Amino acid sequence: MWKPLLAALIVVLATGRLVAQAATGDGGPTDPNIVFTGRWDTSTPTAYTPYWAGAYLTTGFTGTTVRLKQRGTIDLYSSIDGGAWVYRTNVSGTVNLTPTPLAAGSHTLRVSYRVVAGSYHGDAVFQGLALDSGAKTYAAPTPAKLIEFVGDSITVGTTTSQNALTAYGWLIGERLGARHTQIAQGGACLVATADGCVGLEQQYTKLNPNAANPSWDFGRYAANAVVINLGTNDVGHGVSTTQFQGSYTNLLATIRAKYPRAYIFALETFRKRYVTQTQAAVNARIAAGDTAVSYVPTEGWLTSTDYSDSVHPNDGGHVKIANRLAPVIAAKL
């Protein structure tokens, strides 16, 4: 009987306050064995909500079945034991992810909600996992490094077969064995404009791409690399070259302040917009003594057959981007 009291005393001595002992391995949103990658709103302990594209959760679990508790209707992808992603549409409530029971033992699970132009399609609110009687979660292996991909609908993966899951950022993260998240919004600009274009110069620091508050807590994770692909949409919203360069310079400074040790890659947009200004912003950082930033030219990476329309790469186009960009990132990681 003294061991629980001793454990509680240690908590008080270590933190200066008495903390309620939460259940471990029960599959609830606060379960420490569930890892949430990306920007998730965890302010409500019974319901976690992801923002931006490419967020996902990972955990291990025992038993033969696993069910996902959803607040409302949602489209989602799930993968068990590293297998192929299974796509489920318009599901809600307690969603059975194992209609065919698994072999008894230990398994891993990943879940990612489907995005449309950067906004989640449906009610992307995670309320926990339901496991077999006597089963529990466990901490699955988690990659040590994390890469952020910052951009617009191209980075989201719009028009590809699985959106965020078939975008170059996701492909690169998987290939390099790193956690990854797409801080991207369909239609986004670098510069916020009077006609309503979401500007990532200011929204990059926010939990929600479409809300001024709250700010994102950058203490939640530290990115090892940040890849920026912005400028494709600014032209259509009248952003001048001077304004673009200044805003790109500001964004680079913001990212450096948030991630002092990250390597920053500034991509040439595939439509060759604001090329000179992007290079100038990078050169200004380098001239200021920042040696962990570089401009990445993308000339010749894609041809007309790699697009699903005049702007967005198709599945094959994203694979080509990943083939070119992954070695560049790997060399710095």
Rank of each mutant, 00 (worst) to 15 (best):
A225R: 00
G151L: 13
T137F: 01
A280Y: 01
H237L: 12
Y204Q: 13
A47N: 09
G169E: 13
K206C: 05
E148Q: 12
T24S: 02
A22V: 13
K206G: 11
G82I: 08
R271Q: 12
I183E: 09
A8V: 14
G317A: 09
Y295C: 11
T62E: 12
Y263P: 00
G231A: 13
T30D: 05
V19P: 02
H312K: 03
G83Y: 00
T24M: 02
T278D: 04
R285I: 06
A322K: 02
D81I: 13
V11P: 07
L129W: 00
A287L: 04
E148L: 07
G105Y: 01
A130H: 07
G82Q: 03
A117P: 00
A225S: 14
R39S: 03
G157A: 08
T159F: 13
G173N: 10
A284Y: 03
V11A: 02
S294E: 14
R39N: 04
L131P: 02
T30K: 01
S153A: 05
Y48F: 14
N233W: 04
P50Y: 06
G196V: 07
Y51R: 14
P214G: 13
G169H: 08
T37E: 15
N163A: 15
T59K: 08
T64A: 06
H237I: 03
T298R: 03
N250E: 06
G199A: 04
V86L: 14
D31Q: 00
A211C: 12
E148V: 02
A287V: 00
P297F: 12
Y274Q: 14
T303V: 10
N163Y: 12
V125P: 00
D309I: 08
M1R: 04
A14C: 12
Q185C: 02
W170M: 05
S215P: 02
G246D: 04
E148N: 05
I147L: 08
Q277C: 03
L333W: 08
L252T: 10
